[in-house]
Each structure stands twice: as structure tokens, then as C-alpha cells.
């Protein structure tokens, strides 16, 4: 099984991605994360207007196997959540970097991106995790 990585994103060790465009950013979970979780049945999204620091829990994703917390890749204030996931949580499985996005937010400090992995580093990280049997 191969892991897809989006070249426009940066990545956390807890398998979230973030994509920054100007002064806004999008975040979701990675292809590796959705593969590990298998069929996603529900995503509990934060309220618009709420603020979270880097590594704070901002969402819970529930699959037929487990419920997992999702951690903010970088801190920020929630501008919008992906309402489409309410009726179609499977979008996360089908298109984790696109239609399966979780939140649009305004980052507080883009310097926090430095702590994240670039696509090449994450691909290696996720591949190793997969070879170790996933986690």
C-alpha cells in the first residue's frame, strides 16, 4: 500500500497536514491517517471562532475501528469547517488533502511551521511507520 503525500502541505508527527495560502490555512488528516483508521463515519469539528494553540486537540475523527483526536499543526482561529463531512465523512477517505479537509483557519504564528515536516520528510516518516505495522 502506498501513501499519498501532497507537495503543497507540511506535516505533523501525529499525521495532520496544513496548507498555508497567504494569511489563511487549511488542515486535515493525511492519507496515512485515513488508511490506518479505515472507514471514517464521523468527524467532530470545532466551532467557528474558536482558537487553538499548536498541538491542541481541535477535532475528533471516528471510524469503524477507533476514535482519534486531531491536533492543530499550527495554532490559529477557526474561520470555517467542512460542512460536507457531516453527510459524507467518507470524503476524508476518498480525498484527504482535498474535499476531505477539516478546517480553514487564521494562523497566529507562521513561525510554528518550522517544527513541521516537509513532504519528503513526512513521506519517509509515514512509510517507516507503515513498515513498523502502523500505529
Amino acid at each position: 500500500m502506498s501513501i499519498k503525500v501532497d507537495p503543497t502541505c507540511r506535516y505533523t508527527e501525529t499525521h495532520e497536514w496544513v496548507r498555508v495560502e497567504g494569511d489563511v490555512a487549511w488542515a486535515g488528516i493525511t492519507d496515512y491517517a485515513q488508511q490506518q483508521l479505515s472507514d471514517i463515519v464521523y468527524v467532530e469539528l470545532p466551532e467557528v471562532g474558536a482558537s487553538f494553540g499548536q498541538k491542541e486537540v481541535f477535532a475528533v475523527v471516528e471510524s469503524v475501528k477507533a476514535a482519534s483526536d486531531c491536533y492543530m499543526p499550527i495554532g490559529g482561529e477557526i474561520l470555517e469547517t467542512n460542512g460536507a463531512l457531516e453527510d459524507a465523512p467518507e470524503l476524508v477517505n476518498q480525498d484527504p488533502y482535498g474535499k476531505g479537509w477539516f478546517i480553514k483557519f487564521r494562523p497566529t504564528d507562521l513561525g510554528e511551521l518550522d517544527a513541521l515536516m516537509d513532504p519528503a520528510a513526512y513521506e519517509k516518516f509515514a512509510q517507516e511507520a507503515l513498515e513498523k505495522g502502523g500505529h
Binding site: V60, E62, A67
Partner: peptide, 9 residues
Amino acid sequence: REQHIRREK
């Protein structure tokens, strides 16, 4: 939801 999936959540 309680027993198998969400547990402490």
C-alpha cells in the same frame, strides 16, 4: 460508540 470506538471520548 461508547464501548468499542469512543471509549473515554
